[in-house]
């Protein structure tokens, strides 16, 4: 659906985006995560040419948008909706007129606009707010209006630039839910920029991690969560899936402390009970969590294995063979 070839965006003395090539599939929810200044916002703004890349080509729906004239870009933008962190609604216009604006931009005649706007407001759950002004709405409601405006012309792609960063957690969840629903029912490809790993975890299929204008890691959200490689990725994963043990526990340990990651099927099989039955050790569970990502379980367990050194080592080998991921945090004292 979207293909980037060697996209570079330079400002006077800084390079915001550095030679990024990327393909985003149709119907995918693709996340781009990074800290502020990583260039993710610039990158997403290139996708509808709000920002013109200095170098490289961008294809949307098979068409090279970087080669289009201004007039054709405007037309193309009707296929690429966009929502923003601060909503950016026209404060002097009612909710109805804000949504109608998008249709006006596409040259839709008034009667059709009057029929289409209520449908859109219905879809985002704001049918009763048509006559309200943006200042009378909550943040979540404003973002819903912005979504209705972005979807007015039946776009194929929806760009979300930190769309939930100004919202409280409950509202964030509701908006993410709405985005997922839109993705499922309308088949719209969503590209989402965020600095919150939780957002990625909740709705994205794939994620790219950006740092200093480059993509440092890319993969399905499940893979990135279960085996982050780049230090930055690890940091982001830890932000939602964190296991720090108090120093005190490590110091006063009696056995070996190990972190086990359960992926996919292994997360659902009783490995700990099997181990206990097979080896003469005791296991003390220090920390544990199972997260579901795209409905697949990802479990993490920190255990302390107490017993003879021989038995512990054998048990750890046994667990490691079954789970593929075991990290010894501290050996027997």
């Amino acid at each position: 659906m979207i293909r980037l070839e060697g996209i570079t965006k330079q400002y006077k003395n800084t390079t915001a985006v550095h030679d990024i090539s990327l393909t985003i599939g149709k119907g995918e929810i693709f996340g781009i995560i990074g800290y502020s200044g990583a260039g993710k916002s610039t990158l997403v703004r290139c996708l509808n040419l709000l920002e013109r890349p200095t170098k490289g080509k961008i294809f949307v729906g098979g068409e090279e948008i970087t080669a289009l004239s201004d007039r054709d870009i405007r037309k193309k933008r009707q296929e690429i909706g966009m929502i923003f962190q601060h909503f950016h609604l026209i404060s002097a216009k009612t909710v109805f007129d804000n949504v109608a604006f998008s249709l006006k931009a596409a040259g839709i005649p008034k009667e059709e606009r009057n029929a289409r706007v209520p449908e859109l407001l219905e879809m985002v759950g704001l049918a009763d707010k048509a006559k309200a002004y943006p200042a009378q709405l909550s943040g979540g409601q404003k973002q819903r209006v912005a979504i209705a405006r972005a979807l007015a012309n039946n776009p194929k792609v929806l760009l979300c630039d930190e769309a939930t960063s100004a919202l409280d957690p409950t509202t964030t969840d509701a908006i993410l839910q709405l985005l997922k629903e839109i993705n499922r029912t309308l088949g719209i490809t969503i590209v989402l920029i965020t600095h919150e790993m939780e957002v990625v975890q909740k709705i994205c299929d794939r994620v790219a991690v950006m740092e200093a204008g480059k993509i440092v890691e890319l993969g399905t959200v499940y893979d990135v969560f279960s085996g982050p490689e780049h230090p930055l990725t690890k940091e982001f994963v830890q932000s939602v899936h964190s296991f720090s043990l108090p120093e005190r526990l490590l110091e006063s340990r009696k056995g070996t402390i190990a972190k086990i990651t359960f992926k996919g099927d292994s997360a659902e099989s009783p490995i700990i009970s099997e181990t206990l039955a097979k080896f003469s050790i005791t296991i003390n569970i220090l920390h544990g969590q199972i997260t579901y990502i795209n409905d697949k379980p990802l479990g993490t367990l920190i255990i302390e294995a107490i017993g003879s050194r021989q038995e512990i080592e054998a048990a750890i080998r046994f667990i490691a063979a079954r789970t593929k991921q075991l990290e010894v945090l501290a050996d027997v004292a």
């Binding site: 709000l50 909706g81 966009m82 923003f84 601060h86 002097a92 604006f101 006006k104 931009a105």
Partner: peptide, 25 residues
Amino acid sequence: RGVIEAAESCGASPWLIMKDVLLPE
């Protein structure tokens, strides 16, 4: 500036932006 950009992202022409965004705002 963001409001103008949002209008541009809708594919609005400069003329429409002047009439429906700049003047009312």
